[in-house]
Design a protein around this nucleic acid. Structure first.
Lengths: 149, 149
DNA sequence: TCATTGAGTTGCATTTTGAAACTCTTGGAG
DNA sequence: CTCCAAGAGTTTCAAAATGCAACTCAATGA
């Protein structure tokens, strides 16, 4: 992201990377826009149809995501535009997968069906796990945050 | 989470696990409350002080998270309570780490310092990567969503 | 017993959302 | 060339969520 955008900003908690990310994409719509962009959506109308979002809100969120360097907007004649994920945007893939996998585990009743993320060969993507350099599992209890110096 | 909670709910997109998760924790405060719970916060006042959140909003978010089975509330005499992450809540660790690592990479200017997540030995937690069963890296471009059947 | 602290309510102002109607531009169909 | 439809927004206004300050209420504990 552009340095000038991080510099003058009013962060909820300036030293915490979690808080900064939440400030940038932590609302109901931004993450779903990013999800759909990863799934191939690229124009205003495509997002509009997939999300059932109000037009003015979509306008606002797209602009915000472009401003934050997550989406790239290119004109394709007239008012027509194409929105593409930037490298930073694509890098949110891990986050989206983490949200997805948690939802699969905890937001569906046993009998409810849900969509599944698969690799190019059609095999389900394995569950993300956090491990130390030596491969040992790390949890919220066994890790801790070292404050910025 | 309690099945009765998933059943009658008004989801933004009922078949999508990402959307369900975002419906449950995708607002500015919930994820930061969860972050602080993972960092040891347990009482109303502790959350209040760490987050600089309005009291009524904190009340609402804590109640919501308890209702969604992410936090557990236990009385400790009078109006005093302790909030603890449930198993589902602890399982959001992966998501919080993903948000944190994205923020570290994209929401800080090169010269800015930020806190670091470390394992019990004090070593930084490695970057989360999504890999197929065979260990090959998977990105937004190489994966896709198989719709619910 | 009486002030203090934790954990909320309540009332009101400010912001953000959402829905619907309106605008502007441009690539075609005729 | 003219007119129309489609894409991509604005604008307007009502409804909901947020934020702040002041107020309540129960249990310590000096």
């Amino acid at each position: 992201m552009d340095v000038t955008l991080t510099a003058g900003r009013n962060w909820t908690d300036p030293a915490c990377p979690v808080a900064r990310t939440v400030d940038l994409v932590g609302d109901r719509w931004s993450l779903l826009i990013i999800r759909d962009a990863m799934d191939g959506a690229a124009t205003f109308t495509e997002f509009l149809e997939r999300l059932q979002i109000a037009r003015n809100i979509l306008t606002d969120r797209l602009r915000r995501l472009v401003d934050h360097g997550i989406l790239d907007r290119s004109a394709t004649g007239g008012r027509r535009h194409t929105y593409q994920l930037t490298e930073a945007g694509k890098d949110l893939f891990t986050t989206v997968v983490a949200l997805r996998q948690w939802g699969e585990r905890h937001a569906f009743a046993p009998h409810e069906t849900h969509s599944v993320l698969v690799d190019p060969q059609g095999r389900p993507v394995p569950v993300l796990r956090i491990r130390g350099e030596d491969g040992s599992p790390i949890t919220a209890d066994t890790s801790h945050v070292r404050r910025a110096t």
